[in-house]
Design a protein around this nucleic acid. Structure first.
Lengths: 339, 339
DNA sequence: ATTGACAATCAAAACGTTTTGGTTTAAGAT
DNA sequence: ATCTTAAACCAAAACGTTTTGATTGTCAAT
């Protein structure tokens, strides 16, 4: 059936030891033997059995990514780009990417435990961090390699890559205040997510710096989906004193808010301005194009994967903790000209 | 370090054979021994080493999904939903999902070969089929399990799930013709993709049934991205005799076409109508909401994964080849009232 | 007392590969 | 001729688990 190292040994007249050492370029195997073994292996289509290798070498060369959601929410381009970034970098190193989705009937921590205790992955990438994140607590407690896209509350003594959401949202608020907006609403993510805290903090601090208090009625809790953004924007626009600006904490919710505004006859960018956060690939080409904060999700995927693989290979990281500077992208949804 | 079966054997005073058979519920192990072994294993946090199991059992319980693209294009909700559908179903069976990214260039087959020859997966899910698809040719030739989302040219003697793109596009054309449109443009996918052929066939046959020929100037080749749809719609709208309707073969390109039309001052749904295909989660909430053909990508992901796992477990499939009936979803982008 | 059946357990082999440490041969130095 | 060294190769053990087939002890029937 499948070609094994024994088949190559038989065909070459060498021992399985020599075949193995020839294929792995040991210096105590002659050049002639190496060429012979490698030729025969290629002819017969021999590929090492990975399970046998992993068992013997006690290495998996596999990255674990457990997506903290399931179902159609994975249509959110955030996840697609992240998987792309992680997957492409893992592929460069010859590592595998093991993806799991989180079903509601399955205990999240059980999945982590099973893969860790079964030594199925060399490390995990953690995404969409919560303020108190038991995933991170567990991995620290077991001293198992991981890298985080995001941060948590408390001691940040683990490697992470994050974008400065405080500064990003502050940049948006400052831009809107400069445009003359004083009644600014905010649609935030679910509060257990750590980035919700940072982004709201950025909004509130920037408002305070301009002597503006946020009217509590202008603070809505969204669920990161377009549908959620649509619903919250409808509620905001129905207020006795509706906002002149809606600051959504991610692009998806901003798209939903734009739809809600447009359906009520508002011209977005003139009658009301709406902003997002992420700069998903779609933001530039939507109508109107979306003002947002650029977050290089694909590149972050590359970075966290690179860091994790280096960690699992015993290499030191040049930077253990990276906080990316946000970049404000001004487009039509806040009134800028098409560009 | 990690708890092995030897540790449990030592702690229980039983042989490793008995421990294994107790954990795997063999009927020749006493109930008392089973309880003892299972208790000790739980206390010590024992999880079997998966590589050892896979080596011994010659089973991987892993599904291979090699996404035929790289980089930010994975932000396309098609891929996110597919991964969700496959991942959720794999999780239900306790199977792993191994995701790789690889553009369809000359290295593509090397990844398939490596995973197949290394017995790293039990089977593959193939997506975004081409008219001549060397992936499918290779898997058939090697008699390796796979299930396809889509079809190819020629003999369809493999298990697949697809949606009837001919009928779906025909339904759109008929709807537009009924609305009075006679100058209908079409933005197709790259022609090597098999579904491009089916969808264009649906367009052309439906037009012919109404005595309409497609003006070659109204046939544009897109690349499935929003940006591509934008560019093609711009070209179409710049024609001396622009179309009154643009039929895009996927939602992303339709969104791009909508943006292009709106930027030129057209009211989509009144001045021009635009349709898509997929019914991505965003189609309903965009502005205007998009008329499209529903394609249950998440459910298809479930189905192909289910079929593949059954195949790898030696079960027969109730249906080896599923052609889903399309469902036309009429929304505002073709002039329907908001609903 | 002997034999047969059954419950329960266990040693050994197996899976495919890598690594450790041993063996053999040939060449060069003494 | 003898000893040493280096090149090249190989047998055995190892990795952790599962499966096969053997063994042991007990009980019931003859």
């Amino acid at each position: 059936m499948a070609v094994t190292i024994k088949d190559i040994a038989k065909a070459t007249g060498k021992s399985i030891t020599t075949v193995s050492r020839a294929l792995n370029d040991y210096d105590d195997v002659s050049h002639e033997t190496k060429l012979l073994v490698q030729r025969v292996a290629a002819e017969k289509g021999y590929t090492p059995n990975l399970w046998a290798q992993r068992l013997q070498k006690q290495r998996t060369e596999t990255i674990g990514l457990i997506l903290p959601t399931r179902g159609p929410r994975l249509g959110d381009p955030f996840f697609g780009q992240l998987i792309a970034g992680v997957g492409d970098k893992a592929g460069e190193y010859g590592y595998d990417l093991l993806v799991s989705t989180q079903a509601p009937d399955r205990d999240e921590m059980a999945i982590y435990k099973k893969k860790l205790q079964g030594r199925q992955v060399d490390g995990f990438i953690i995404v969409r961090t919560r303020r108190q994140d038991r995933r991170i607590d567990y991995l620290r407690q077991t001293d198992f390699p991981f890298v985080v896209f995001g941060r948590t509350e408390g001691e940040l003594d683990y490697p992470y890559v994050d974008e400065d959401g405080v500064a990003g949202m502050a940049a948006i608020i400052e831009h809107l205040v400069r445009l003359g907006h004083r009644r600014i609403a905010c649609i935030t993510p679910p509060e257990e997510l750590m980035f919700a805290t940072y982004r709201l903090q950025g909004v509130q601090e920037a408002l305070a710096q301009h002597g503006l208090d946020m009217d509590p009625a202008l603070l809505r809790r969204g669920d990161l989906t377009q549908r959620g953004g649509f619903a919250e924007a409808q509620a905001l626009l129905a207020l006795p004193q509706p906002p002149t600006a809606i600051v959504a904490c991610n692009d998806l919710m901003a798209f939903g808010a734009i739809s809600a505004a447009q359906q009520q006859g508002f011209v977005v960018g003139r009658d009301i301005v709406i902003t997002g956060f992420d700069d998903t690939p779609w933001a530039e080409h939507s109508n109107p194009s979306l003002t947002t904060v650029h977050q290089p999700i694909y590149e972050i995927g590359n970075m966290v994967c690179d860091m994790l693989i280096r960690l699992t290979q015993g290499q030191s990281l040049e930077q253990r903790q990276v906080l990316l500077k946000p970049r404000l992208i001004v487009r039509q949804s806040c009134g800028a000209d098409a560009s």
